[in-house]
Computed example of a mutant assay.
Amino acid sequence: MHIHNLNTQSSVLNKYIAELRDINIQKDSMRFRRNIERIGELLGYELSKTLTYVAREVKTPLGTSKTKLAQDPLVICSILRAGLPLHHGLQNCFDEAENAFISAYRQHTSATQFEIKVEYLAAPSLEGKTLILADPMLATGKTFVNVLEAIKHLGTPKKVHLVSVIGAQPGIDFLNRELPVDYTLWIATVDPELDAHGYIVPGLGDAGDLSFGSKMQG
């Protein structure tokens, strides 16, 4: 798997990540969502550099301009519910992309053990298209693997990009072992470890709850 970690170089991205982590700033759920959205835009911009471009002519009021435009058919698939702000950021970059949504959650079998349950799915065909699979938190890596298995019946994408805001190194190592080498991960920053419950350390907490409010446990 190819990995692009945007935080290897300092940029305005640092500010957005710092605000996501800050326990005082993240109390403002609207700002929290907006920061994830802005990070999605930056990740989408970097990802766009790898797409296939063809020359096009655009007529202006005063003449003709030649430019190169991406021709890849894209599908942005976000993992509910935490993935919605990230989806919006990617959609701001790729406004002609098709959209897909899938639910995935942890079902605990003990205090420290859990399975990933995938349920709701709404998606177009993926056959021959470029799939952008978005989930802001990459903890164990199991969610990405289970979701990719759940959408296999939708067709074989030409290319698969995984997009996350914060990941843990153990989860990235897991994806490296489990996924094809031609998959690509785009991530804003990587933290060193997971705690005993499988949460990213230092991380930022529950991105879904911080974006949309706390939820009742089923």
Rank of each mutant, 00 (worst) to 15 (best):
H2E: 15
I3A: 01
H4N: 15
N5H: 12
L6V: 02
T8K: 14
Q9D: 08
Q9S: 12
S11P: 03
L13A: 03
K15C: 13
Y16G: 00
Y16W: 14
I17C: 06
A18C: 15
E19A: 11
L20F: 09
R21G: 06
N24M: 09
I25A: 07
D28R: 04
R31D: 07
F32D: 06
F32Y: 04
R33Y: 02
R33E: 00
N35A: 02
I36E: 01
E37Y: 09
R38C: 08
R38M: 14
I39Y: 01
G40A: 10
Y45L: 14
S48Q: 13
S48F: 11
K49A: 10
L51H: 01
T52F: 12
A55T: 15
E57W: 05
V58I: 15
T60Q: 09
T64N: 07
K68W: 11
K68F: 10
Q71M: 01
P73T: 01
P73H: 03
I76V: 05
C77T: 11
S78T: 08
I79N: 00
R81K: 15
A82I: 06
L84E: 11
P85C: 05
P85K: 02
P85T: 03
H87D: 05
Q91V: 13
Q91G: 08
N92V: 08
N92Y: 10
C93R: 11
C93D: 06
E96W: 14
A100F: 09
A100E: 01
F101K: 03
R106A: 02
Q107M: 14
S110M: 15
T112D: 08
I116P: 05
K117P: 10
V118Y: 09
Y120G: 04
L121T: 12
A122D: 09
A122P: 02
L126R: 01
L126F: 12
G128E: 09
G128I: 04
G128H: 08
L131T: 00
I132F: 06
L133Q: 02
D135Y: 07
A139L: 08
G141Q: 07
K142P: 09
T143Y: 07
F144K: 10
N146V: 06
V147Q: 01
E149A: 14
H153I: 07
H153Y: 15
L154P: 08
P157D: 03
K158A: 12
K159S: 07
H161T: 02
I166Y: 02
A168R: 05
Q169M: 13
P170N: 14
L175V: 06
R177D: 12
R177N: 10
E178T: 05
L179N: 00
L179K: 01
P180N: 05
D182I: 00
L185E: 01
W186L: 10
T189C: 12
V190N: 03
V190D: 04
D191R: 05
P192F: 11
P192M: 10
L194W: 11
D195H: 13
G198D: 07
Y199G: 02
I200M: 11
V201H: 07
P202R: 12
D206M: 03
D206Q: 05
A207C: 08
L210H: 03
L210T: 00
K215F: 15
M216P: 12
Q217E: 15
